[in-house]
Write a protein that binds this DNA or RNA. Sequence first.
RNA 1: GUCCCGUUGGGCGAGUGGGCAAGCCGUCACUCUUUCACAGUGGAGACACCGGUUCGAACCCGGUACGGGAUACCA
Length: 514
Amino acid sequence: MENKRVRLRFAPSPTGGLHMGGVRTALFNYLFAKKHGGDFLLRIEDTDQTRYVKGAEEYIVAALNWTGIKIDEGVSVGGPHAPYRQSERKELGIYKKYADQLIQSGHAYYAFDTAEELDAMRKRLEAAKVAAPQYNAVSRQNMRNSLTLSEDETKKLLDAGTPHVIRLKVPRNEEIRFHDIIRGWVVVNSSQVDDKVLLKSDGMPTYHLAHIVDDKLMEISHAVRGEEWLPSAPAHILIYRYLGWEETMPQLAHLPLILKPDGNGKLSKRDKSGLPMFPLNWTDPSTNESYIGYRESGFFPEAFANMLAFLGWNPGTTQELFSMDELIQAFSFERVNKSGAKFDPEKTKWFNQQYLRKKADSELAALFAPVVEEKTNGQGAKGKGQDYIEKVCKLIKEKAHFVSEFWEMGKFFFIAPDAYDADVIKKRWNEGSAKFIAALATEYKNMGDFTAAEAERVFKATAENTGTNPGQVMQLFRVCLSGMGGGPVLFEMTELLGKDEVVKRLETAVQKIK
RNA sequence: GUCCCGUUGGGCGAGUGGGCAAGCCGUCACUCUUUCACAGUGGAGACACCGGUUCGAACCCGGUACGGGAUACCA
């Protein structure tokens, strides 16, 4: 099947907020689809009714949208293969048909075992020191299924509506080979594969059956998913084969896991690193547990997507900053790693910082203005206007990682400091420096043109006249204005505050600091 | 336990048999700004281990160790 249209899908279960690992899977699917001019679909795999979480689907769509992943087809946008929710497709009888087909061809069978019987079987096998207790070619011979029961008995049970599942009949000892775009050839013996349930007793298909049927019907060309699926891939190969679809099955790619920053193990829903694990804020409706999102933490979606792309992939060049279009251009599965990638909070912040620097001041001001309004109860920006906020942003963005830090870093642009950095005061404040600050206030008061250059010139002149070493009082001057020992370029900041405000703050400082 | 996947500096990662093993984050130092940062320059820091193949191995093969994943009528 050469020249088959490239179609990839992201197929999450609506069991909670979409974790950033899930977003990465979606992103890789999306990048590959777009790189080859294909389609990106969103399918919801809600076959487990007991784990269904309300609002999860909406969250998934919103998270993808925010990240910049556009859905061509599927839930939320529709398309020629609708419906795209497996629970709805089940109602149409789509999966049962193929399960029946497998029964007919002898590759699947009915199993009537109760949960207790299954449990007893596992215990029995464990007691017998069987390495991997499972429902398979050997153990099924001692269970209640259409392979051990007579045709009559089976029919009777079915007619009586006895609860049952349909299981895949996995051969006892057969080599299963499959090719993974990222990992190469993988070989597993069928003795390691259990007789997977295809259709549950409630009539719902399991993931194993459902995703294969849907991928076929939706003409998916590449199935890209997390590494946790690798062990069940051999079973999937068998299903494709028995359905007669092996020749046209999607190419497989199993993505490496994202590991937590400290120690080992899969990245979980909570992490001590302090960074969010979810793209957007998420509150679980049943447990009321809530998690913060990247968006709400002040991350730019471009930075988030860029960071995610580098978790397990790299372009092979030294370029690290990529727009979505550039990612699409550069992406390939050949450059996806096999080993798990540790999530690096520091690097993640760095990405956001890079994007922050590139943003136009006006764009940042638009984000920051509401914060200023809120924090000052509508007072701070008043009379100073958008232009003032823009200039503040211009000064602050050089040292920030997030817009959300702007207020703490630059609130003195809007309200006078009510406290002064104790360390600096302790170190620098004395009779001489106090005198200098007072003198500076006076000099500034008499100035005309209050530019950064002029302010600096007068500052130095005043230092000379009072016999003060400028280096000794420069940081002090900063503290008098902002309360803080560090901050934006000093005289730029002075100019922006304006003459009157600067003089006032200096005078206040002289009075307040002892 | 069994099966599968993996293992290059503190983190991410380039590298696919042949000149001193890229780059980024972090860290340290220096420079610059007579402050704090930013920036620039430089430093320290790695091929898990043991065998084998080869004139030659981070790259190929085997074993060991370590890590991860899977082992459900969950996905």
